[in-house]
């Protein structure tokens, strides 16, 4: 499965890389929303993991811009964030995110979490 992972913290990208290796994902890592927008049209991911708080273009803005890209209007987008108060989660879903995974995430179950979100989505 082709996965686009957008996260400004290099350490967290590394952990995600280890957590998701050998799990059947083909992953492109991006360190900013801008980079994600540049890579996404060619890569055509099947799922997008998006950090919320990033310098420059934040997660919600990146989501809106990704939706403008041909082929990505309906791609599942999952936010990965420490902002997980109930009203914050509702806000992310209202923006068009499929789900929110709380940080710190458990690297041992991250791949399963992503898969079950996608499966539930159908």
């Amino acid at each position: 499965m082709k996965l686009l992972y957008v996260e400004d913290e290099a350490d967290i990208r590394t952990i995600a890389e280890f957590a998701l290796e050998d799990e059947g994902f083909e992953i492109v890592f991006c360190e900013s929303g801008e980079q994600a927008l540049a890579r996404a049209p060619d890569f055509q991911p099947e799922v997008i993991l998006l950090d919320v708080m990033m310098p420059g273009m934040d997660g919600p803005t990146t989501l809106k811009n990704l939706r403008q890209i041909p082929g990505l209007q309906g791609t599942p987008i999952i936010f990965l964030t420490a902002k997980v108060q109930p009203d914050e989660i509702k806000g992310f879903i209202a923006l068009g995110a499929l789900a929110v995974i709380a940080k710190p995430f458990d690297p041992m179950t991250l791949a399963d979490q992503i898969r079950s979100i996608i499966d539930a989505h159908g």
Binding site: E9, D11, I12, I15, A16, F18, A19, A82, K103, P104, F105, D106, P107, M108
Partner: peptide, 14 residues
């Protein structure tokens, strides 16, 4: 506080 914790917790768990 959570951002560095994500890295610490994740590394240790792995």
């Amino acid at each position: 506080l959570r951002t560095p914790l994500t890295s610490i917790y994740g590394s240790l768990s792995l």
